[in-house]
Each structure stands twice: as C-alpha cells, then as structure tokens.
Write a protein that binds this DNA or RNA. Structure first.
Lengths: 240, 240
DNA sequence: CGACCACTTGAGCTCGCTCAAGACTAGTGG
DNA sequence: CCACTAGTCTTGAGCGAGCTCAAGTGGTCG
C-alpha cells in the first residue's frame, strides 16, 4: 500500500439508483458542487494498493474512509466460528470503511490493483461542519450501500444455490468494468472461493453449480475467469 | 391508518452504534439542534396505525419517510418467486421508507399499534437545503441501518438454523421494549411465520428449532409469545 | 361450542456440505 | 523447453439438516 503523488483528483462517487435531478450525472455519479469538491480534494490522500493486499483488517482502529478511483475491493467479515462472509464487492466510485465503536467492522482486500483515495475520519468530520451539504452526498452514498446490502440479502437467502449464482452473475454484469454487453462476456475478477464466500456456500458447490448452469446453456465458459452469459435466461430462471 | 392531532412531537431518532461525543444522548438517541428539531417538527405529520395493517406496499409511489415514535414495524420484500423475505424489524426511533426510482422497495406492516411520524419526501428535500446539517442526522441513521443490514446478512448466512434462531433471540433481547433483563423474559412481538421469513427458513423448522433450543436449556417457553432466555448460553452456541 | 388460525409433529426426500481424490493452471528453476 | 510444485479448480461418494406435504393439536374469538 503506497501513497502516490497528489495531483488534482476529480473524485467520482458512484450512486446506484435514482436521485433527484441535478444530483447525479448521466453516468450515475454524484455531482459535487465545486466548493465541496475542492474541500474534499484538500483532505484526500491518494493511495495505491496492489492486488491481493489488504487495506485494513476488521478490528483495526478505524482511521479513514476510502473511495475507489479504479480497481475492485473485497469487503468481508470474519466470524468467530471461522466463516468468512463477503459483505460486498466494491468497484470504482464506491466508498468503504464502515466502522463502529472506533474500529472497522470488516476487512478490505484488493482484488485487483487499485487506486484509492483516503479521507481521514476526523478531517471528514470537521469538513462536514464547514460544508454541511457534503453530508448530503455521503447520505446518498450510504443509502445506495443500504440498497446494495438489501439486494445481497435477498440474493443469499435464495434456498437454491443455482438461483444465487444466477443472481450473482447478473449483478456482476451490471459492472461496466467487467462485462461487455456487445459480446456478452463477463470477466470474473474473483476466484471461486470468493464467489462461495459471497453467496454463502462452498467452493465445491460453486464449481458444480457453474457446471449445472452450463448444461442449461445459461452460461458458457471461455476460460476459468471468462464466461459468456445468457442474461435473459439467467434472469428468467431466478423467478421459477 | 389515521392522522392524529398535531401536538409538539419531540422526535427521537435511534442511532445504534457509537458516535462522536455530542451526537447521541445516554439512551443512544440522536441529539438534534433546537433549530433542526423545530424545522423537522414543522413538516412532521403524526400518523397512527393499528396492528396488522399496512403503511405502504412495495412498488407504491414513495411519497414519505416514516419515523417510529412507538410500536414495531415489519419491513419485507416480496420476490417474484413468491418468497417473502423480511428485511428488518423496526422499533421506536427507527426510520423506514427506503425507495428507489420513486417507489418503495419494501412493504411496511405494523406488528403492533404504532405511532408514526410521516415526513413527505419533497418537504424533507427542501428542508435539507435550508438546514444542511439535518442531512448529517439522516446520514447517521442511514449508516446505522447499513450496519443492521450487514448484521442481518451475517445472521441469515449461518448454515445451521439453530445458530440463526439463537442470534435472532439475542438481537431481540437488545430491544428494551420487549426484553426484561431482570427476569430474562423476551416478549415475541411477531408470529412464527415472521421469524421464519426473517431467518429465511420455514415455520416448521422454526418450530422444531425452538424445541431444540429448549432441550438444550438455552430457552424456556412461558407461552407462545413469551420465552425465558439464557443469553450467555445462546451467545456461546453461536461460536461453536 | 364450533370454526379458524397459528403452531406443532411426523415421514420422506433432496440439495448441498464434508471429506477425499484427482485434474488443471501458472509460476519457477533447472 | 520441460519437469516440478503449489495453488486453484473439479469431480466423486456419502450423509444429514432442513424443505415439503400432510396430519394433528391447541388456543382464541365469534
């Protein structure tokens, strides 16, 4: 995890969902006023992390909140019984660093090389006092995260793993970074274990279930990390 | 669902978790500045709903956000395949009314008679412009909701229903409204189907699992809706 | 007292977990 | 260029928790 030189940042906050006119741009990114943008940039520290390295661990003193400029992160929670539940995959424009009682609730690891922006919590807090409407932007982000968390809940509570996996693939295909709608090819950024930990199942079952979806012609493997999706078919099978 | 006469409201926002000094009071409720409190009260419409009635349905045009003054609500999402996943039980001090694309994402039903406060979204939006730091209070709420949603996720992803149920009982016992730490007696406000839909299992399994916990002496039934808990024991079994 | 609803109990079956091999991939060094 | 190795992924076989359907019990309200 290395600090990069501090050029102007032009921060992009991605806000999934719909918002009042003037809140988000055509790409679904938050529109910050020039003042808040400048104020944010003033306290923003660029950070680069290499793939498969950790940004922070669950239980660490929560010093910062992070914004992803490029790359993808894995946010996971380790339970006392040894389980490792992935709480979210986070993409460029997403914030991460949820904390409680002064410590991070989850661990954050880079899936790919990432460019991050680090905001120290105290700095953010005092900036909130100076630029109160900045809280509105973070509110929008928090609500977007809440929606994502509920979607995840609905996904993992499907009794049949086939449905969970289908839903997961559809979710992934919403990420422009890794899905090409022209070709229908999805790049899987994470390994089978990550998928299992996200869907709350086992590697073996993920492997077998991918096989099952292939037999149903709902997906085709190109190689381990690239698959062709039948999006309509996958969505249809979620209903049945 | 009836509107009550509009006396001064003294709104209480419950913010689970820890916050900077001066943000919450000893009961864990948000401290609003007198100005924001007054401004909020000006756009707040008191609403009373009777037990087992609906406040809004998933898909309805999202006109408002609601704060619970007293009582308990069930927030659930109906999936296309017929499943009914309870997303949260909400208690006094909680907000509900999550929306996207102008419609509610979930349905909200009263478990008990409830006193609510309704904030119209447009009114809230314009109030945010006048009182920007009010967004900070809603930010705190949204983050608290996000944490709860993640806790719920961790709960329902336990493979063994015994653990889910144990965790659920422990969660319930954190609600002062329905748990008496003196006697260790928990009042279950919801029926078995609700528990099943919250834990993503079936009524039958809930019933059997309650039996199993009783055999392990981790809980004792007083009647259908009242149980005595061995909190320490329940928490211990979550780990194994 | 009867009817309805919520809850419990029973029996069988199935999906997915577990443990255990085996196959494939990629990275390393001779 | 080809072993060698370590990590990842797949496949196999057996078992068990929980789902399903179905019947039975108990509480509540007219």
């Amino acid at each position: 995890m290395t600090a990069a030189a501090g050029a102007p940042l032009s921060l992009r906050f991605h806000a999934a969902g719909e918002w009042p006119d003037g809140t988000v741009d055509s790409a679904g990114d938050l529109i910050l006023s020039p003042e808040t943008d400048a104020a944010l940039a003033a306290i923003a520290a660029p950070v680069s992390v290499k793939a498969k390295t950790s940004v922070f661990r669950q239980g660490d003193a929560a010093a910062s909140v992070y914004l992803i400029r490029s790359g993808a992160m894995r946010v996971a929670h380790q339970l006392e019984d040894g389980r490792n539940q992935i709480v979210a995959f986070s993409w460029s424009g997403d914030l991460f660093g949820l904390a409680d009682h002064g410590v991070y609730l989850n661990s954050a690891d880079a899936l790919t090389d990432c460019d991050l922006v680090e905001f120290s919590r105290p700095a953010l807090k005092s900036l909130f006092l100076k630029e109160p409407q900045l809280q509105g932007d973070f509110l929008v982000e928090a609500i977007a995260d809440l929606r994502m968390s509920q979607r995840h809940l609905l996904l993992v509570t499907h009794q049949r793993v086939t449905k969970r996996l289908a839903g997961f693939l559809v979710e992934c295909a919403r990420q422009p970074d890794c899905y090409d709608p022209k070709t229908g090819v999805l790049s899987l950024i994470m390994d089978r274990t990550d998928i299992a930990d996200y869907l709350s199942t086992t590697v073996e079952t993920v492997s077998r279930t991918i096989g099952a979806l292939e037999e149903q012609r709902l997906m085709t493997r190109i190689d381990l990390r690239h698959v062709h999706l039948d999006l309509a078919g996958l969505q249809a099978m979620m209903v049945r």
